[in-house]
Amino acid sequence: MTQTLHKIKDKTPMNVTAQLSMLWLIVMFNMIYADILAFISAFITPGVIDELMSGYSGSVKLSQKLLLISAILIEIPIIMIFLSRILKYQINRWANIIAALLTMLFVIGGIETNPFFLFLASIEILVMFYIIFIAVRWQNPQNLSN
């Protein structure tokens, strides 16, 4: 047992690009699960299916334009999983900061009052704050070798 704990402590820390990519995965898994639970919730909450069938979600009129905007905004964290690994330092750093801010606005803009959604959205926002924190503190790897 102590050997196992010793191996865990001695493990080399994950590089910044891998950390950022993993954090974007956490954001995406939370977003996906929030959508799955919202879908399930629609079936168990009286009147929600009828409301959606009428073309509304609450006071929001559903349209192809709105769905396209949502698809574009959800693509940001999806593509950041990959881009966090391949972009060069300076672009990567700013891309993560900007993507996290835009995605936070998207999450906050779509906020619902269901407890499961508030919980998952809180996790998403906390993780994105952490992404920003890492990106802001990230030092140029080339400067470290000097």
Rank of each mutant, 00 (worst) to 15 (best):
Q90H: 12
L62P: 10
T103V: 10
F82G: 12
I86M: 07
F117D: 06
I131E: 04
F129S: 05
K65A: 13
E124I: 03
W94Q: 09
I98D: 00
S70T: 15
M128C: 03
E75M: 15
F82H: 12
I108N: 04
E112P: 11
A121T: 02
T103I: 08
S70M: 15
I97W: 00
M80Q: 13
E124M: 04
L73F: 14
I111H: 14
E75T: 11
I74N: 11
T103N: 14
S84K: 09
I98C: 02
I74G: 10
Y130A: 05
Y56C: 03
I81D: 00
A71V: 15
K65F: 13
I91A: 06
L67V: 13
I78G: 06
I97G: 03
F106Q: 06
I76L: 08
G58I: 12
I86R: 06
L101E: 03
V60P: 10
N92L: 00
I125M: 04
S54Q: 11
L67P: 07
L67H: 13
M104I: 10
L118D: 05
N92P: 02
L67E: 13
I123L: 07
W94K: 08
I123R: 09
G55K: 06
S54D: 07
I81K: 01
R85M: 12
E124Y: 00
S59Y: 09
R93M: 05
I81F: 02
R93W: 05
G109D: 08
R93Q: 09
S63Q: 04
I76P: 00
L73N: 12
G58S: 10
S84R: 10
L67A: 13
M53N: 15
L83Q: 00
A71K: 12
S122V: 02
F129I: 05
Y130G: 05
N114V: 05
I76C: 03
S122K: 05
S59C: 04
V60A: 14
I98N: 00
E124R: 02
M128N: 01
Q64M: 14
S122R: 06
Q64N: 12
I86A: 08
L66E: 15
E112N: 12
E112A: 12
L73M: 13
N92E: 01
E124G: 04
I79V: 13
Y56W: 09
I98K: 01
F117G: 11
P115L: 02
L101F: 10
N114P: 08
I125V: 08
Q90G: 05
G55W: 07
I91R: 08
E124S: 05
I79A: 05
L102H: 02
S63G: 04
Y89H: 09
V60M: 15
S70Y: 13
S63A: 04
I123W: 08
L118M: 08
E75Q: 14
I81W: 01
L73D: 10
Q64V: 15
F116G: 02
Y89S: 01
Q90W: 11
L68M: 11
L62A: 05
S63P: 07
E75H: 15
Q64I: 13
F116C: 01
Y130R: 04
A71N: 14
I86K: 07
M128W: 04
S54E: 09
F116L: 03
F106M: 07
I131R: 07
A99W: 00
L66R: 15
